[in-house]
C-alpha cells in the first residue's frame, strides 16, 4: 500500500492498484452513449420537421434517450465516483433514498397531465377557453424592447 492510512476507523484500504484502463473504457462508453443520444435527438428533430410527426415514434425515441441517460448516470456514479467499490451498506444508504424519485416523477408528471386536461376541458367550475386566450399576456411595449 503506497498510501498511509486515512483514519484508524477504516478497516481495509480499497484496492487502488489497478491502472487507468477502467477509466478510459468508461470514457469511451460515455462518449458512445452520448453520440447515440445525439443521433436519436437529430432523428426526433427530423421527425418533427415532417408533415405528420408520428407521436408514438417520437415518444419511443424519447424513452430510449431517457434509458441511455440512466446508463450514463450509472457509469459516472459507479466508476468515476467509485461508489461501486464502496461497502454494500453504504451504497444502499445512497441508492435507496433516491428511489423516491420513481414516485416523484410518476406523481408530478401525472399531475401535469391532469392539469393539461383541466385546461382543455370544462374541468371543475372553470369554463373552457381556447389555448391562445389562456396564455399570460406580455405587453408588447414593455417586453419587446431592450434599453
Amino acid at each position: 500500500m503506497s498510501q498511509h492510512t486515512i483514519s484508524p476507523e477504516i478497516t481495509f484500504a480499497p484496492d487502488h492498484s489497478g491502472g487507468t484502463k477502467a477509466i478510459w473504457r468508461t470514457f469511451i462508453i460515455l462518449s458512445v452513449l452520448t453520440v447515440i443520444e445525439l443521433i436519436i435527438g437529430l432523428a426526433i428533430y427530423n421527425i418533427h420537421k415532417g408533415e405528420h410527426p408520428n407521436a408514438t415514434l417520437v415518444l419511443g425515441f424519447k424513452g430510449m434517450v431517457c434509458i441511455l441517460t440512466l446508463a450514463k448516470a450509472y457509469y459516472i456514479v459507479s466508476v468515476f465516483m467509485h461508489l461501486g467499490s464502496e461497502v454494500r451498506n453504504f451504497i444502499m444508504t445512497i441508492i435507496v433514498p433516491l428511489a423516491l424519485f420513481i414516485w416523484f416523477i410518476i406523481a408530478f408528471l401525472w399531475d401535469g397531465e391532469s392539469w393539461k386536461n383541466l385546461r382543455n376541458t370544462n374541468g371543475g367550475s372553470r369554463e373552457y377557453k381556447p389555448a391562445t386566450e389562456q396564455q399570460h399576456v406580455v405587453p408588447a411595449k414593455t417586453e419587446g424592447k431592450k434599453d
Binding site: 483514519s7 476507523e9 477504516i10 478497516t11 484496492d15 467499490s85 461497502v87 444508504t93
Partner: peptide
C-alpha cells in the same frame, strides 16, 4: 468490486471502526 476480502465475522457496528469503511468527510 474490491478485491480485498473482508475478514469473516467483522463486527461492523461495535464501534471503533467506520461501518461504511470510509472516512467521515
Amino acid at each position: 468490486m474490491s478485491t480485498t476480502a473482508i475478514p469473516a465475522g467483522t463486527k461492523w457496528w461495535n464501534g471503533g471502526r467506520s461501518p461504511f469503511n470510509s472516512s467521515y468527510g
